[in-house]
Structures are given as C-alpha cells and as structure tokens.
Design a protein around this nucleic acid. Structure first.
Lengths: 166, 166
DNA sequence: GTTACTGCAAATAGTTTGCACCTAG
DNA sequence: CTAGGTGCAAACTATTTGCAGTAAC
C-alpha cells in the first residue's frame, strides 16, 4: 500500500497509460475496478506471484469493494492487453504477475518448498528463433519453467512427501 | 487397438517392466486397471496428448470397465513413476502423454488452431545446467512451451477471436 | 439515456474424497 | 484372510455465467 519506490510508480504509470490506450481503442469503459486490480498487481514485490482468490481477499481487506467476478474479468482483460502475465505452474492454480515490472524472466519452481525463483537466460531467444523458423510459426510468447531440488541444506518447508520416483 | 508397430510394442513392454518394478518396490498391487491405462496412453500416436475425460470415455468404449476415479488414480501413479508426462498448457486442462515413447521434446501451441506440435532443441539442456549452477538447484525437469501464430495461410480452425493485443 | 460493467449467487467443469465392496498377494 | 484398490456418487475448488442493478460516456 505504501511500498511505492519511485521506479515502481513510474512503471505503474506506464502501465496505466497503456491500459488507457487499450480501453480507448477497444471502446471499453475506464472503471475504477480495472485500475485497482492493475495497481494491486503492480504493487507485488519481485518474485511474488498471486492467484485470483488471494488478490480478491487482499483487495477486500483494503479500502476496495470489488467482487470475485470482477477480479476475474479485470485480470483477464489485463492479460489480453499484455500488462499482466498468467502462469500455469504444475499442480498450482493460475498465478499472475505484472508484465512491465522487470525484464523478461523465466521461473524455477522448487520441488521441495514449492517456492518460485526467477531467472534470466537470453539464449532461450535463440531457440525460439531457430524453432520458429524450422516449423513455420511466428512465436509470440513462451513459457519456460524448471523444476528442481534446491541444494539448500534444510529447506524449511518440505511440503512434498519424501516418496521420490527413482 | 490394433495400431501396434513393433517399435511401440517394444517400448510398451519396457514401460510395463518399469511399472512392475515400481509397484514391487512400493508394495503396490498389480491391478489390471493400472496396466490398461498405461497401455492406452502408450497407444497414442505421436503428437497426440490426451486429457483424463477423453481417456476415460475412450476406455469405456472399448472392452474395459474402469471408473473415472481409477483413471485419475492410475494416471497419477504413472506420472509419479515417470512413465507418463503431465502438461498444463495455457487455458487447457491437464494433458498427458507417454514418457518413454520418443526422445525428450518440447511443445509449440498454435495461437490460432490450438494444435500442438513437438520439437526438439538440445540447447535447452545447456540453459538448465547454467541456471541450475547459478541458483543452486538440481534441476530435474523442465517445461518449455512456445505459443505462436502459424504461418500457414488459412489455418482451418480459428477458434480464437480476432482481438489481438496490439 | 444507453449500454457496458459490476456484484451476487447459481451453474459448470475438473478433480478429489468417502465409503462399501472386491481382489491381489 | 486382509490391506490396498476400485466404482460410484457426493463433495470440493476454481472459474464462468445469468441477471438485475449501477455507472461510464
């Protein structure tokens, strides 16, 4: 709520402008709810991803009055206009994060504590180009997720059972 | 049902052996259902992925008597022992494919017709190694999905609306 | 004023669970 | 014989939908 680093404010402003433009172009209405959802998502600290229900409850606990349905609708719209990214990590429900906040990055999900880390390795772009050319597709987006066991000694919250498959 | 190329039979046999071993190790029972689900999945042609409901219906339409719950249970078990891979493609429900059938590959989902193509680009392995080393994680699996617009002229089934985000 | 958007509650879809019965070991 | 597994139906969870009321333009 008060965690507004200058950098963030600037990025949020950019995001709002893009949303303005998109709503204008598509003849959609500039409702308070759409901007609140955008703002709330852009206030997420780096490495944090949020699901609809949590976002809804978080907003309800603040000054906002918003319904679950509207959170779903707004967030979909934000994904459509490219301001928010949706992730479908294995065995989790959909998680969202702001798209403009940081450079493009991919994700590493810890098999043990289920925490999500972000990483960036530019050579994925080369693979995209190579594959796109070879199969005749103009690749627009990608999703790259690694699943690994962290090498941290006593990874605090081992939510998975010990049953390892081999 | 009768599409049993020699290669496939051989791979299926390998899969069955692995399942045998796994069930032995874990003191689980060798039920007919578990083997039927395995078989049915291994009969899928390349590039085809199947969801639980379709698999269930398909089995019901054959000689099998199996319940939905058992399909869910068995398929989970097959994923755990590494014989089947589960995918969570964007906006689709969980899809499964045999793990032993072909070399490891990744997927390209067409934004227009939603078809799934498979591709293989070995340099993803280098990224895995590099990232794993840098963040201190032993990366076990990965999921790489590209989303692109095919450059085929009149891609037959345009299921998506034309609304493009920019 | 008109029409899109919102909130609510009911509906849906995919998956999980509880429990009586069955069967592999 | 006796757990573990199966089938069925009911429960649950995430998301979508229908509709009456509200507000953006």
């Amino acid at each position: 709520m008060s965690m507004s680093k200058p950098v963030m404010k600037e990025i949020l402003q950019r995001a709002k402008n893009i949303l303005d433009e998109y709503l204008n172009d598509q003849n959609l209405r500039k409702t308070a709810e759409r901007y609140s959802v955008l703002e709330e998502l852009y206030y997420l600290p780096q490495d944090e991803h949020i699901d609809v229900e949590t976002l809804f409850l978080r907003m309800r606990n603040k000054e906002y009055t918003i319904s679950r349905a509207t959170v779903y609708n707004s967030i979909d719209l934000l994904v459509e206009c490219g301001l928010v990214v949706k992730h479908n990590f294995k065995d989790k429900n959909a998680l969202y994060e702001p798209a403009l906040t940081y450079e493009h990055h991919d994700h590493l999900v810890c098999n043990n504590c289920l925490k999500i880390k972000e990483f960036l390795d530019p050579s994925i772009e080369e693979i995209k180009k190579r594959v796109g050319k070879s199969v005749g597709s103009e690749i627009k987006h990608h999703s790259l997720v690694f699943y690994g066991d962290c090498t941290i000694e006593n990874c605090e919250n081992l939510k998975r059972k010990e049953v390892v498959s081999s």
